[in-house]
Design a binder for these strands. Structure first.
Lengths: 152, 152
DNA sequence: GGCTCAGGTCGATGGCGTCCACGGACGGTG
DNA sequence: CACCGTCCGTGGACGCCATCGACCTGAGCC
């Protein structure tokens, strides 16, 4: 992970469809060299995926909610997690410090679907209670921040 | 936005670096046709960006926090928003229903940096108080959910 | 019917991805 | 010091891909 790798990561976070030739020009290496570096970043787990970022409303997912989960004292966190994983509406899942063990970001089409999701969550074994906040609008999301090399 | 557009979006959400030729094979059109469709999806705002998804720890951003913001009664939400926008640590920003007007997802390198960020947030004009939760681990994030055509 | 337009296919061409052989820099070893 | 792997890069070659223009086809409308 040197400065060139960092530049490549930053370039690809900004635009994942840049060609290797273009990346090569930007970092001052040849295309095969860049190809190899990016390959190593991928297989080394630094780059996890390349994703198109889509306007959620355009694909019928207009409702965003953030849901805090309080765990049952007797429950097993792994089982709860597995149950969450089965629910495709849950886009993100964080294990949190605090009373609410999990924070979920969910995306659904309608408030009715959100209601159904919350019911399902509350019925899930290991879940004691839920607390839902609705996002009225998303100002921005997953904005890449400029990379400062570790130790700068 | 027909079924083919939806497939293209779904394919690109899964892997943004697919070639037009490969997309064409998957949806059963010619490459130029796919090229034109994807171009329209981009310029129509359905596809907002293509991003590489990076392991945050690998680029020195090991601490994830979710911060709720209570607004000052006298403040202007736009000014607050603009102040948030200037803080690169804030990756996502939702305008919420409820007492806490905003929910922020922030990513920093160390707890010390998080402390500094919280101090800056509390000093921001228009911000009455903040409430910070720390993510101990990210189970998953921005998982694309299977697309169901609107009305299915 | 015949016009027009949207949206597709086909063919050509220049650039790109990717494989391979080669070469210099570096560090450990007789 | 000379020697020799190893790492990491370059340059060339070749086939595939992106992209443009020309043409085709079906739907909607005078």
């Amino acid at each position: 992970m040197d400065a060139i790798d960092l530049s490549l990561v930053e370039l690809l976070r900004g635009n994942a469809r840049l060609s290797y030739a273009e990346l090569a020009r930007q970092v001052g290496l040849s295309a095969p060299a860049v190809h190899e570096r990016v390959g190593k970043l991928e297989s080394g787990g630094v780059i996890r995926a390349y994703r198109a970022e889509v306007e959620p409303e355009a694909i019928g997912l207009g409702v965003t909610a953030l849901i805090g989960i309080v765990e049952d004292s007797g429950g097993d966190a792994d089982d709860v997690l597995e149950a969450f994983r089965q629910m495709p509406e849950i886009e993100s899942c964080y294990f949190m410090a605090g009373v609410e063990s999990f924070l979920l970001k969910a995306r659904v089409g309608t408030i009715a679907e959100l209601e159904q999701l919350i019911v399902r969550l509350n019925r899930t074994p290991g879940v004691a209670s839920t607390r839902t906040g609705i996002a009225l609008s998303t100002k921005w999301e997953n904005r890449p921040q400029p990379l400062t090399p570790p130790g700068a």
